[in-house]
Design a protein around this nucleic acid. Structure first.
Length: 942
DNA sequence: TCGTCCCGCCAAATC
DNA sequence: GATTTGGCGGGACGA
C-alpha cells in the first residue's frame, strides 16, 4: 500500500515536503532557537511564513493568529489558543504569517509537474496532496504546515531546489501539518475522525509516516484508533491527564533512577533493578501502558509487537522527561532505558534502532511543543538530548506550566513576545477551563489576569496560582473518583476497558495535592512562624485573588471562600492533618518540594521519593488490587503514607512530617521490600537517602516511609522515630491523630489509622467497623474525645468495604468561622458541627492561626460546613470547597464532578456535569474514569 | 565523521 | 487472502 514515494513522490509532495521540511527545519531551528534566540525569530518567521504560505495559512487560523506556529511548542499554544470552542477552523493567523509562498494551486501544479513522479498514483497523490494542502491551508487547523513558504519561494523556480530536503520531509514537519489539520481542542460534540489514507494523501506522504505520527499522538491520547485506518482526534483536552498518568507511571518505574543510573553508571542496571524490578516495574508498566493503549484503541489488541510499538516507546520516553528533574533526556540514555525495559539485547544495533525510533518520537513531540532539542555536554562530549518544555505538572497545571515554560523559553531565545504570549494564552485558556470546572472565582480570576496580562510579570504567579488551583481541583476530582470507586481494582479494569487515561495511575492527584497544598498551606501557615514556606509557597502568587487573599490574609482568610476548595480525599486528609501540612511545609522549607510553586515542575519527583514510587509500584505489583496506591499521585501517596502511618496521638508536627507510611504494615510489605531492594540496588543518592530515612522506622513503616519521598526525608528527623512509634500506636488505635499545633490549632483530627492511602488498595479488613472515618476534635476535647464522626461515611460514597472508609477520603472540610472554636467534623456524608464551646477553649493565638488558615468564606462554600463552626481541617482543608448545598452533606462525588469537568475533559465526553454527577453516584471507579473523560470533555468545551 | 532520520521492505496483525 | 500496521535498519543528508 505504501506508495513509493521516494524522491519521486511528486512535486506537490515535494513542495509540501519542502514546506514541511522547512518547517521541520524551523522546528529544528526552533529548538535551536530556543537555545539561541536569533534563530528562533527567523525561524518563527519562516515557520509562520511557511505555514502560512502553504497550508498554514488556513491552518493557523485555527490556531491562534500568529502565534506560534513556529515551533512545535508554538503549535501547542496555538492549539490551545484555539480552544475547541474557538475554533478549530478559524484561520486567524493568516494575516500574521507571511505567506511568502502561498501554496497556491498554480504553484502546486508547477510542483507537481516538475516533480511528477512516474507513477500515476504518485501524481494523483500529489494532486490530492496539493488539494488537501490547499484546503488545509484554508481550513487547516495547524498553520504549521507552513513550512513550505521558504521552500516555495525558492522552489518555484527550481524544483530541484524545491525538492524537499530531508529536513523538509521530516516527521516533525509532517506532524505539524498533520496537527494543523485538527483543532487543538475540538469541541466535545465534535468527533473528528482521521482517515489515514486521507491524511496521507492530503499530506502527500506515505501512510507509513502517518502511522509514526499517529502512534505517538496516540501515546498521548491525542488520538485514538477507532477502526481500521481510522483514528479519532481528541485534541489536547486530555493531554494533561495523560501526562500526569505517564508521570505517575514513570515515577513508579523509577525512571529517574534509571536515568541517573545510566548517567552515572554506578550500578549495573540489572543489579539495581534486579528481577523484581523488571518483573514488577516493567511488567507493571508495560501492562499499564498496554492497557492504556488498548483502552484507547480497543481494536488494537495488546501484543508483543505492540510492546515495542512506537506508542509505547513514546509513552516511556515521555515518562523519562516527566520524572526527570532536569527535564532533559539524552537519547542514548533513553534508548538504553527503553532497551533495558524491553529486555532487548542491548547490542549496538538495538541501540541504534532505538535511537532512530526515539528520533521519530522526538520529532513528533517536538511538533507538539512538548520537547525541544538541546545538547548536553557530557564527559564524552556533546550529546543530543531533548528538553521537556511541556507541562511539568500535570496535576493541574501542566498546561500552564507548559505554556509558561514554553513562553519563557521562547522569550528568552527569541525575545519575541508573540509566541510566548500565545503560549501563555494557551495556558490561560487551559486555566480558564480548569477554572470553569471548578467554578471557583479564583480560576476565573486567574484567567482574567492571565489573559489581561499576558506578559506581565505577575502572570507567572497568577498562572502558578491558577495551576495550583487547577491542581487542587484536579486532585479533588481524582480523589473523589478514587474514593468512589476502588481505585486499583476497578481502575485497572476500567482503564483497560474504558479509557486510556483511567488505566494509568493518577499520579497527578498526589502531586496536585502536594503542590496545591503548599500554596494553601502557605497562606494558611504563613502565620505560623515555624512554618516557613519556600518562596514559591509563601509568595505564592498574590495574583489569584482568592488564593492571594487567603494567603495574605492568613489571619483573615477572606478569600478562601472564593477559592476553589480543596478536595481532600481521606488520604489527603492525612496529609492535611498536620502531617501533611507540616510535611509540606517542612518540605518547602527544605526546598525539597516542588512546592516552590509551580515553578517546581518536578514536584512529583521532589515530593515522591524513589522509594515511594517504588513502593507504589511494588504495591501494585504485589497486589493488583492495590493499584490504587499506584494510581495515587505522589502527594496522595504521601498523604496516604501519613494516613497510613498510624499516628500517635501526640505527634509533633515534625514528627508528623515524617509521616510514615505505615499504616499498614502488612499492606505493602512485599512491595515495600521490593522498593527497598530496588532503591538499595539502585544506589542512587536519592534513593539512598530515602532509604536511610526510611530505615529509621520499623520495617513496615520503613517500607512505607520510603514513600514519603525525599521531602519527607528531610523533614523526618530524630523525631521521626518517635513519631513513627507513635504512629504505630496510633495505627493500632486505628486513628490518626493530628496535633493542632501545625495548623489545626485546637483541632484534633482523628483519622483511621488503617486507612490506606488508597482506599482501594487497602483491604477492607483493616478498618474494621469504624463507621467514622475521621473525627476532628478540639484539642481540649481529645481527652474526652467526643467528637464527631461522620456517620455513614462509608455508606454514602461507595460501596467500599466497611473498613476501607473510602468515603473518608471524601471528607469535606469547611471552615466557616475561623474564629469559631467549635470543633468541626467532617464526615463525608454529614457534617457535624462541633460545639463552639469546645473550640472556645482554644487559645486565641491558635484561633488566630486557624482563622488565618481558614476562611470564613469557605464555610459558606461548603455546604456541609456550618458557618459558625470553624473548619477543622488543616489549612488545606480550607481549600476544600463543596459546591453542594450547605445543608446537604457534601460528598466527594458531588465535589468531584465539578473539578473533573474542569480538569479532565476529554475530547470525547460530552456529558454534562450534572449527568456526570448522577453517574458518579452509581458508577464505579470505572465509570468514573470514563466519566472523567467524557465529562471533562464536555466541561472543557465550556 | 557523525548526528539525524527518511524511506520503504517486509512481517505481524487485522479484516 | 487482502489490507493494515508498524518494526526495523540501510543509507542518505547535512553540519
Amino acid at each position: 500500500m505504501p506508495l513509493r514515494r521516494g524522491s519521486g513522490f511528486g512535486g506537490a509532495f515535494e513542495k509540501a515536503g519542502k514546506k514541511v521540511g522547512e518547517k521541520i527545519e524551523m522546528n529544528c531551528l526552533t529548538l535551536k532557537d530556543l537555545v539561541s534566540p536569533r534563530h528562533t525569530k527567523v525561524n518563527f518567521t519562516d515557520e509562520d511564513g511557511e505555514n502560512a504560505q502553504k497550508e498554514n495559512i488556513f491552518d493557523r487560523p485555527k490556531m491562534a493568529p500568529k502565534t506560534p506556529m513556529k515551533n512545535e511548542p508554538i503549535d501547542l499554544s496555538k492549539q490551545k489558543t484555539y480552544t475547541p470552542e474557538r475554533n478549530p477552523i478559524t484561520p486567524v493567523k493568516l494575516s500574521d504569517r507571511p505567506l511568502t509562498d502561498p501554496w497556491t494551486p498554480t504553484a502546486n501544479l508547477k510542483m507537481l509537474i516538475s516533480a511528477a513522479s512516474p507513477d500515476m498514483r504518485d501524481r494523483e497523490k500529489k494532486k490530492e496532496l496539493f488539494r488537501p494542502i490547499e484546503n488545509s491551508e484554508f481550513g487547516g487547523a495547524f498553520p504549521d504546515s507552513l513550512q513550505c513558504d521558504a521552500v516555495d519561494d525558492g522552489t518555484a523556480d527550481d524544483y530541484e531546489k524545491q525538492r524537499p530536503s530531508r529536513k523538509q520531509k521530516s516527521l516533525g514537519l509532517l506532524c505539524q501539518k498533520f496537527l494543523a489539520r485538527y483543532p487543538s481542542y475540538p469541541l466535545s460534540a465534535e468527533k473528528t475522525t482521521i482517515s489515514l489514507d486521507e491524511v496521507a494523501s492530503s499530506l502527500g506522504v506515505e501512510r507509513r509516516r502517518i502511522y509514526d505520527i499517529v502512534n505517538v499522538l496516540e501515546s498521548l491520547q491525542l488520538v485514538s484508533r477507532v477502526a481500521k485506518n481510522q483514528y479519532c482526534w481528541h485534541g489536547l483536552h486530555s493531554l494533561s491527564q495523560t501526562l500526569k498518568n505517564l508521570q505517575e507511571i514513570g515515577e513508579l518505574q523509577k525512571y529517574e533512577e534509571l536515568m541517573a543510573y545510566f548517567q552515572h553508571k554506578e550500578v549495573d542496571l540489572e543489579c539495581r533493578f534486579g528481577e523484581h524490578k523488571r518483573e514488577t516495574f516493567i511488567d507493571f508498566q508495560d501492562r499499564q501502558l498496554l492497557d492504556f493503549s488498548e483502552t484507547d484503541c480497543p481494536s488494537a489488541s495488546a501484543n508483543s509487537r505492540k510492546d515495542k510499538s512506537l506508542r509505547i516507546m513514546s509513552q516511556k520516553f515521555v515518562m523519562l522527561f516527566l520524572v526527570s528533574k532536569t527535564k532533559i533526556v539524552t537519547l542514548d540514555i533513553a534508548a538504553k532505558i527503553l532497551i533495558e525495559e524491553s529486555q532487548d539485547i542491548a547490542d549496538h544495533s538495538k541501540f541504534k534502532t532505538k535511537v532512530r525510533r526515539l528520533y521519530d518520537i522526538a520529532n513528533v513531540l517536538t511538533s507538539l511543543g512538548l520537547i525541544k532539542k538541546v545538547h548536553v555536554t557530557e564527559e564524552r562530549g556533546r550529546k543530543p538530548a531533548f528538553k521537556w518544555i511541556g507541562p511539568v505538572e500535570f496535576s493541574a497545571d501542566c498546561d500552564l506550566k507548559v505554556n509558561n515554560s514554553t513562553c519563557a523559553s521562547l522569550k528568552e531565545v527569541k525575545g519575541e513576545i508573540r509566541v510566548p504570549y500565545q503560549a501563555c494564552v494557551t495556558g490561560k485558556e487551559r486555566l480558564s477551563r480548569h477554572a470553569s470546572f471548578n467554578n471557583t472565582q479564583p480560576a476565573k480570576v486567574v484567567k482574567r489576569k492571565v489573559s489581561s496580562e499576558p506578559s506581565s510579570p505577575h502572570r507567572g504567579r497568577q498562572e502558578d496560582c491558577c495551576s495550583k488551583m487547577i491542581n487542587l481541583a484536579s486532585v479533588c476530582c481524582q480523589k473523589m473518583e478514587d474514593d468512589k470507586s476502588n481505585f486499583a481494582t476497578e481502575r485497572t479494569k476500567n482503564l483497560g476497558m474504558i479509557s486510556p487515561f483511567p488505566v494509568l495511575p493518577v499520579p497527578g492527584d498526589s502531586g496536585y495535592c502536594l503542590k496545591t497544598l503548599p500554596h494553601l498551606l502557605t497562606s494558611a501557615c504563613s502565620d505560623q512562624p515555624h512554618l516557613s514556606l519556600p518562596n514559591g509557597m509563601n509568595d505564592p502568587a498574590p495574583p489569584l485573588p482568592g488564593l492571594s487573599a487567603s494567603r495574605t490574609e492568613t489571619g483573615k482568610s477572606t478569600v478562601l471562600s472564593n477559592q476553589s476548595l480543596f478536595y481532600l480525599p481521606s488520604p489527603s486528609l492525612y496529609m492535611l492533618c498536620g502531617n501533611l501540612h507540616e510535611s509540606l511545609v517542612s518540605m518547602e522549607e527544605k526546598g525539597i518540594m516542588g512546592f516552590q510553586g509551580q515553578t517546581s515542575p518536578h514536584l512529583p519527583e521532589t515530593t515522591e521519593s524513589p522509594l515511594d514510587c517504588r513502593k507504589r509500584s511494588s504495591q501494585k505489583c504485589a497486589s493488583p488490587p492495590a493499584a490504587s496506591a499506584e494510581e495515587e499521585p505522589t502527594a496522595k501517596r504521601q498523604s496516604m503514607e501519613q494516613n497510613d502511618r498510624p499516628i500517635s496521638l501526640v505527634l509533633s508536627k515534625k514528627t508528623t512530617k515524617p509521616m510514615d507510611p505505615e499504616a499498614s504494615p502488612d499492606h505493602n510489605s512485599n512491595s515495600i521490600d521490593q522498593l527497598r531492594n530496588f532503591q538499595v540496588e539502585s544506589g542512587t543518592p536519592v534513593v539512598e537517602a530515602t532509604i536511610k530515612e526510611t530505615a529509621k522506622p520499623l520495617e513496615t513503616e520503613e517500607q512505607e516511609k520510603p514513600y514519603r519521598s525525599k521531602v519527607l526525608k528531610e523533614n523526618m528527623n530524630e523525631n521521626e522515630q518517635a513519631s513513627q512509634e507513635n504512629d504505630k500506636q496510633s495505627f493500632l488505635s486505628q486513628y490518626l491523630y493530628v496535633q493542632p499545633a501545625s495548623g489545626l490549632n485546637s483541632f484534633n483530627f482523628l483519622f483511621p489509622a488503617n486507612q490506606s492511602p488508597d482506599p482501594a488498595s487497602l483491604p477492607p479488613s483493616r478498618l474494621p467497623s469504624l463507621s467514622v472515618p475521621c473525627v476532628v476534635v478540639p484539642s481540649p476535647a481529645l481527652a474526652s474525645f467526643p467528637l464527631i464522626c461522620s456517620p455513614a461515611v462509608t455508606s454514602q460514597l461507595s460501596p467500599a468495604p466497611a473498613g476501607s472508609f473510602p468515603n473518608v477520603t471524601c471528607m469535606n472540610f469547611s471552615v466557616p468561622g475561623l474564629t469559631s472554636t467549635a470543633p468541626v467534623f467532617i464526615g463525608t456524608s454529614a457534617v457535624l458541627t462541633p460545639n463552639a464551646s469546645q473550640l472556645s477553649t482554644l487559645d486565641p493565638h491558635q484561633q488566630m492561626h486557624s482563622s488565618v488558615r481558614l476562611s470564613p468564606m469557605l464555610g459558606s462554600a461548603c455546604s456541609s460546613i456550618k458557618a459558625d463552626s470553624p473548619a477543622c481541617m488543616g489549612h488545606h482543608l480550607t481549600l476544600l470547597k463543596l459546591q453542594q448545598p450547605s445543608s446537604a452533606p457534601v460528598t466527594p462525588k458531588s465535589i468531584r464532578p465539578i473539578h473533573q469537568e474542569t480538569f479532565f475533559k476529554t475530547p470525547g465526553s460530552l456529558e454534562d456535569p450534572v449527568a456526570w454527577r448522577k453517574n458518579e453516584g452509581n458508577q464505579s471507579r470505572i465509570a468514573s474514569s470514563v466519566q472523567r473523560r467524557l465529562e471533562i470533555f464536555s466541561s472543557s468545551s465550556d
